[in-house]
Computed example of a mutant assay.
Amino acid sequence: MIYTHGVFNYAGQKMYPDWPDFAAHTTPREQTYLRNKEIGGDSGRKGLIFEGRYAAFRLVELAAALLNGDLEAARVHLKIQVRSFVDDFAIIFDDQIEWYEIKSGKVYWGKVPDAEVETGVVERKERTVADNFRSQASVDQSIGYPSTLTLVVADGELRDKLRNERRHHDLPGVEVHWIPDSHSPSEIWEIEPEFEEWLRALSPLTESEEDFEVVYDAFQGAIAKLKPGVALNLLELGKLAAKRYHGVLSIGRKGRLNPETWGILELFKADVQFAVSGTTLHYQWKGDHGIVPAEIGTEAGRRFEAAVKAMPNYDVQTLIELLWRFKW
């Protein structure tokens, strides 16, 4: 788990989204490189599916942390194509930033071998990957901003190789992480078991992998709506994911039903199972997974709870009619 929870600045220090003047902390050659990246960066993002998958993987982690009360959504921002040396994805806390460079194919810290360039396996660029990580670390150190740097790859053997070579390139503090380049949640949690826990926190009562794929897809869709270089608050990004998943995902505060309401619902547990995720009440009946279209703690949610308490008969059909109401 890479994100840092509880690292917030209560002294009013500006967040990294108030972007620093890179020219004041870089060489003329580095400044030229950054200008060239700004010209071609947006078009290069198209079709880079693995970047979106990894960013969504991290977003699922953060959303689960919100539901567990480990994070405050307003204090976390996300960016893609960040206009920096390590630029694919960034998670910005109040006084800390996590930088991610995400590569689905072959990658080298240093110069790309001629044979690899000739076969088109990997492209040779003016600056090496190691150059960019060293420059980013130097900028953050110069402005006094705590950061972590991570190179993400899609192959375990490549991860191990790059980890072993870090010291040779003066990059001992850079993390190298990998997840499979796959849309299958089970293939990912085989490598990162916590991924399953995070998905279950977001969508309780779900058992089929197809349903978890829908959740994962919702976060990838939300990531895709980010504008390059523009920071978006985690709560707002969560709303985009919830909209894509028809309101099932509730990201933000943790909701709690009135104890009397929960006690009545518990009477039906032999037929209908219930679980709360964020401010969404999930249910499962006859193998079908649904949600109540009323956010817990809102006026609509209170109307739903009042209707549960006012049921004339505690029978399943009466309850199902309440659960299936289109609007509260």
Rank of each mutant, 00 (worst) to 15 (best):
K239D: 12
L235Y: 09
G247R: 02
H246P: 00
L257H: 01
L237K: 03
R244C: 01
A270C: 03
P259D: 09
A241F: 03
L249G: 00
V248G: 07
L265H: 09
E236L: 08
A242W: 03
I264L: 12
L249C: 01
I251A: 12
L240K: 11
L235N: 09
A242L: 03
K269M: 00
L240Y: 06
A270Y: 03
G252R: 04
A270N: 12
E236S: 12
F268Q: 11
F268P: 08
K254D: 11
L234A: 13
L257V: 01
R253E: 15
L237M: 14
N258V: 09
R256S: 11
K254T: 15
K243C: 01
S250V: 02
G255C: 12
L237N: 06
K254S: 14
A270H: 13
E260V: 11
F268I: 10
T261H: 04
W262P: 00
F268D: 10
L240A: 09
E260L: 12
T261N: 06
L237F: 06
I264P: 00
S250M: 02
L235M: 07
E266H: 10
K239N: 08
R244N: 05
K269D: 13
L237A: 09
A242N: 06
W262C: 01
R256Q: 14
E260H: 11
K243E: 12
L237G: 03
G252A: 02
K239G: 09
K239T: 07
L237Q: 14
P259G: 02
R256Y: 13
W262R: 13
H246Q: 11
H246L: 11
R256L: 14
F268S: 08
K254N: 15
G255N: 13
G238R: 00
G255P: 10
K269W: 00
K269S: 15
K254P: 05
R256E: 15
K254F: 11
K239F: 05
E266L: 10
E260W: 09
W262S: 14
I264A: 03
L265G: 06
W262H: 10
Y245E: 05
E266C: 10
E266Q: 15
S250A: 12
N258R: 13
P259N: 07
